[in-house]
């Protein structure tokens, strides 16, 4: 395991060195969070107030959901590039599986983002919203822990999208499709509890998309009845499932590696 730690460590340092990339990404986060929170301000101002959810809590929910998406580095782009260029082949004769080498690197970069977004992102949300959540600041700590494991899950999904290049020759559209499903079924723009019944919100809560987005930020909403342990275990369950699925997929991909020419 120590080798994976060192790959993550080097990637962490390398990620933080690229300050321009980190800054522009953070700017986009601020812009999106501002737009989405403004949208809910308009909805509340027009009297459409969801039952029992204050504007402050809704704004924190939206801001933290946006933040989750920005924590994971775009690892699918790297894998997509490796597969298309054939570079993946040149990583296969190393004494560690390519898949987990890239995961370690992604996790290192994720830790870099955690540092940036927890130090600057959460204070930014506080300044934007103007208030702490109704249930106090103590709720932010378990949410930050849930966001970390949610980002790991998001990272694993991205790796799956990256590997899809073996069949599609382009992971970008697969990732975009995945992202739309995550936005819709995960509750990115509105809590799942507000979804109409035909969406079966009680089932959506147990899907990996909600485990990545809605459940975590939803932890601060009143009357959800979720416990931290339940939400965390649900994330671990999905992480385990995705890890097994990726391992199987990776074995199939290995047989499809083709590196023509010198």
């Amino acid at each position: 395991m120590i080798k994976y730690f060192h790959f993550a460590r080097i990637s962490f340092g390398d990620h933080l060195k690229n300050r321009l990339r980190a800054f522009t990404r953070f700017l986009i986060f601020m812009l999106l969070a501002w737009v989405m929170i403004q949208m809910w301000r308009v909805i509340y101002a027009n009297g459409h107030t969801p039952d029992g959810i204050s504007l402050t809590d809704m704004s924190w929910y939206i801001g933290l959901s946006q933040l989750m998406v920005f924590l994971s580095p775009r690892i699918f782009v790297t894998i997509d590039d490796d597969v298309r260029s054939g570079n993946i082949g040149y990583f296969l004769n190393r004494p560690m599986p390519y898949l987990w080498m890239r995961f370690s690197e992604g996790f290192g970069a994720l830790c870099g983002n955690i540092l940036i977004y927890f130090i600057f992102g959460i204070p930014f949300l506080y300044l934007l919203i103007g208030n702490v959540p109704d249930c106090g600041t103590s709720v932010l700590l378990p949410i930050m822990a849930l966001l970390l494991s949610a980002s790991v899950l998001h990272l694993l999904f991205q790796i799956g999208c990256g590997l899809s290049t073996f069949w599609t020759n382009d992971a970008v559209f697969i990732y975009h499709s995945y992202q739309k499903v995550m936005i819709l079924l995960g509750g990115m723009y509105a809590p799942i509890s507000l979804y109409p019944d035909f969406f079966f919100p009680q089932i959506l809560k147990f899907l990996p998309f909600a485990a990545m987005v809605g459940n975590n930020a939803g932890f601060l909403l009143p009357n959800t009845g979720d416990s931290f342990i339940e939400l965390f275990l649900l994330q671990l369950f999905w992480i385990a499932i995705i890890v097994v699925a990726l391992s199987g997929l990776y074995q199939i991909c290995l047989k499809k590696v083709e590196v023509n020419g010198g």
């Binding site: 080798k3 790959f7 080097i10 004494p95 560690m96």
Partner: peptide, 20 residues
């Protein structure tokens, strides 16, 4: 096989961990 943005010595160090 070298990391493009890193000095080669960092790659050597990483590889030394990879090769235990």
């Amino acid at each position: 096989q070298l990391w493009y943005h890193l000095p080669a010595k960092d790659t050597f160090e990483l590889l030394s961990y990879a090769y235990e």
